[in-house]
Design a protein around this nucleic acid. Sequence first.
DNA 1: AGGATGATGGACT
DNA 2: GTCCATCATCCTA
Length: 189
Amino acid sequence: MKSTQSLASILNGPPEEAAPQLLGWHLVSTVGDRQVVVRISEVEAYKGDDDPASHAYRGETVRNASMFRRPGTLYVYRSYGIHNCANSAAGPEGVGWGILMRAGEIVDGAAVAAQRRGRTDELANGPGKLCQALGIEIQHNGTDLLDPGSVIHFEPGTPPDFVMATPRVGISKARDRMWRFVTATQLSG
DNA sequence: AGGATGATGGACT
DNA sequence: GTCCATCATCCTA
């Protein structure tokens, strides 16, 4: 797979085009000096003011500000008061575009992930579970995912065999957009 | 296997 | 007060 620099140019594009190209990349966490690596297997695109389902639909707020920062900026938000969900900002700085990372396959650090999750299965097959496995908290909001020195960052991984597009999950608006992208292994898993 | 539900807090009308 | 970019558990089969 290509370099982090090439990912930077991918993420500079519109999220519905960048999101499928994020599949297969590794998301590396060294939170708490314990490494967990996940291969991204499910993502969703959210396109700011074009997209009623997006947190950025009504413009920039304190909460969603990270979506308006440079592409590759981590946007973490609390979901249903319980879970955290992680996005990468996409598009040029100033547009509220982003890519929600919904699921991944554990590549390294399964024991740490299992400890954080409190179980040995279903470690990262959902947005809340992914964040819990990687130790991603609200305090990590704004992290530069393209900086190899960040506690949470992207690294080249293994490209997916193929990619399937489906409607997005857990939203009530703009359900017609085929902006959820999953890999082959995610379908069978 | 699959549907219903409670937990729980912030953002928004 | 209502709506969530969710998840684990508790049902019915």
